[in-house]
C-alpha cells in the first residue's frame, strides 16, 4: 500500500498544478512533464547522475570483485579482512560526509588531502567549492569506501556457489590464473554480477545523502552537482518552489527510468538462455 498508492497518487498529481499544496488545483495535462523534460536544470541532474554512475558503478564493481577474489584464498586472515572491508557499511552517509567534508577534502590548508599536497609542494585545492570539478573525487571516493564491502560480500556469496571441481578440472588442464578468471569465474558469476551492477546503478540513481551533506551550506544547495533526487527534493519540498505537481511528474519520470533499468537487466540475464533455444 505504501508503495503503490504513492506512485498512483503522484501519477494523478503530476497532471495538475499543485503549488505548495497537496491537493490538485488546476488540471494542466502533460505540462508538468513537458516542463521537466525541457528544463535544463532537470536535464542537468540527469547528466550529473550519468557522470556519477559512469565513475561509481564500474569502480565499485571492479574493486569489490578484486577484494572478493583476493580474500578467496588468503587463508587464516580471511575473516579479519572481510570484517575490516565490510565495516564501513555500518557508517552513515551523514557521518562519512562529515569526515570527507571537514577533514579529508576540506578546502582549507588544514584538510588532510591539502596537508598531503602541501607537504609534496603543491598548492591546496578547493575540493568542494565548485570552482573546479574536484568534488567528484570526494563524492566518488566516499561512496566507494562506504559500499565496496557490501558488494564484496555479495560477490563472495556468488563465488562460493561456483563448484570447486570446475577449478580442479581447469588446474589439471593447466589453465593459468588469468584464464581461470576469464573463462570460469566471470561467466559463472554472471547472474550475481548482473544483480550487483543493477543494485549499484539504482543506488547511484538514488544518491542524495552524501551530495546533500557534503555540498549544502546553511539552507542553500550549490547550483552544481545536483543528482535527480536532490533536484526533485529542491523543486518539490526542500526549496522555496514547493511545486508538488512538478514533484509528482518528476517521480513518474524517475520511476520509469528505474523500470527501464530493470527490464534491461532482465534482458541481459536471460539472454544466454534465449540464444541456446
Amino acid at each position: 500500500m505504501f508503495v503503490y498508492v504513492p506512485i498512483v497518487w503522484s501519477a494523478y498529481l503530476s497532471f495538475f498544478d499543485a503549488r505548495a499544496t497537496i491537493r490538485p488545483t488546476q488540471f494542466v495535462g502533460l505540462a508538468n512533464y513537458k516542463y521537466l523534460l525541457t528544463d535544463s536544470l532537470f536535464l542537468n541532474s540527469m547528466l550529473t547522475f550519468i557522470v556519477f554512475a559512469v565513475f561509481i558503478v564500474p569502480l565499485t564493481y571492479v574493486c569489490s570483485l578484486a577484494l572478493a577474489l583476493a580474500l578467496d584464498n588468503v587463508g587464516r586472515l580471511r575473516a579479519f579482512f572481510r570484517s575490516v572491508f565490510f565495516i564501513p557499511t555500518a557508517c552513515s552517509y551523514v557521518v562519512a560526509a562529515m569526515i570527507w567534508r571537514l577533514s579529508f577534502f576540506n578546502g582549507a590548508r588544514f584538510g588532510l588531502m591539502n596537508s598531503v599536497l602541501s607537504s609534496l609542494g603543491f598548492e591546496p585545492v578547493d575540493w568542494l567549492g565548485g570552482s573546479n570539478s574536484w568534488y567528484w573525487v570526494a563524492l566518488v571516493s566516499l561512496r566507494l569506501w562506504l559500499q565496496v564491502g557490501y558488494y564484496m560480500i555479495l560477490l563472495i556469496a556468488g563465488l562460493n556457489q561456483i563448484p570447486t571441481d570446475t577449478y580442479e578440472a581447469a588446474a589439471i588442464d593447466g589453465a593459468s590464473g588469468w584464464r581461470r578468471l576469464r573463462y570460469i569465474t566471470l561467466p559463472q558469476l554472471r547472474a550475481t554480477s548482473a544483480a550487483v551492477l543493477m543494485l549499484l546503478l539504482i543506488g547511484a540513481f538514488q544518491a542524495f545523502d552524501e551530495f546533500y551533506n557534503m555540498l549544502s551550506t546553511a539552507g542553500a544547495y550549490p547550483p552544481y552537482a545536483r543528482p535527480p533526487l536532490v533536484h526533485l527534493y529542491l523543486i518539490s519540498l526542500g526549496g522555496s518552489q514547493q511545486d508538488l505537481g512538478l514533484g509528482g511528474a518528476g517521480t513518474m519520470i524517475l520511476t520509469a527510468i528505474i523500470v527501464v533499468f530493470g527490464l534491461a537487466q532482465n534482458w541481459w540475464v536471460t539472454r544466454p538462455d534465449r540464444r541456446q533455444q
Binding site: 508503495v3 498508492v5 504513492p6 497518487w9 503522484s10 539504482i202 514533484g247 509528482g248 520511476t255 528505474i258
Partner: peptide, 14 residues
Amino acid sequence: MVPAAVTFVPSFIM
C-alpha cells in the same frame, strides 16, 4: 526495483 527514496514526494504527501 522502485526504491522508496524515489517516491518520496507522494509518500510525503500521503
